[in-house]
Amino acid sequence: MAEPDAALGGPRPPSNTESMSPRGWRLAIVLVLGLVFSAGPLLFSSYWVGLLTQMVILAILAMSLDILLGYTGLPSLGHAAFFGVAAYAVGVLATVHGAGFWTCVAGGLLVGTLLSAVLGLIVSHVRDVYFLMITLALGMVLWGLSFRWIPVTGGDNGISDIPTLAAHSGLPFAGPLALYYVTLLVFIACAGVMALIVKSPFGLTLRGIRENEGRMKSLGFNTWLHCYLSYVIAGAFASVAGVAWAYYNGFVSPTYLDLTASSELFLMVTLGGPATLVGPVLGATAIVLLKNVMSAYTARWLLVLGIVYIVTILVAPKGVWNLGPSGRSR
């Protein structure tokens, strides 16, 4: 998954756009992330295993937004909606209907994906700031729904008592470590599929739309369809993250899909490095880490986080993944 954009095969000089920074920096990032995510949990306390689980789930979510934001160039400020709705589907199925594990998983994925398939019909017509606004608005509507559709969602109290993964799935291993490694497997599968998608002929068209949609149309692409599919794919992977999150936390609440969640997600992608897939993983990891470490040391952690955001944007406008002495002198 190191360089999803290095897609086109054959040997080539290291002068590609989205893989242009020094290899050393990126190798270090991948190495550290790989080590922490594979072996870290064996060394850390269960609390840190929990944080790693969060990072991995949010990494899936951030990568899914990257398909939309980084690759297709569609800036969504409502992406947490699919995450939240999928989590709600699991919550409702598991607690109200007493459904089994696979029903819950399938239900969560289906509801989240179907929702993106329906909303996609609306949002795929607009671009840029209008896309931002309409996704923002739809996200708010869904948040409002989660808050007000009390018989189903439990209102602001949300739905708690979702069974643990081990209890629900009959997995022979219980506890945070087992949950973590199951989540990691899901992450690897999702990352693999997403990396393949962005390398595929279809993935190439998404980047083309980001670069010059007008030219895409005159070349013969139905760009609406491609944007729509991109939106649905992003929604589907966000749903995977939502299902995992429901099992991780054991409850669902409207805050899963509020604006704060969506904008934090947006930051994960932009800070890490859009259109790279690794960047969002880095972004998710860094933000979870910062939030939890920082708040333990200072009450002004929000301020610190804000400064970190600003500094990162100034120092690495293309994201931390693309940081380093630039090779763009040509």
Binding site: G10, V193, L196, F202, L204, M216, G220
Partner: peptide, 22 residues
């Protein structure tokens, strides 16, 4: 990449997602 895009524009394979274009 520019050229590949142009080449797949009128090709049905432009919607293939699970196979690398390479």
């Amino acid at each position: 990449e520019n050229m590949l895009l142009a080449c797949e524009a009128l090709d049905r394979r432009k919607l293939v997602m699970f196979r690398a274009v390479s």
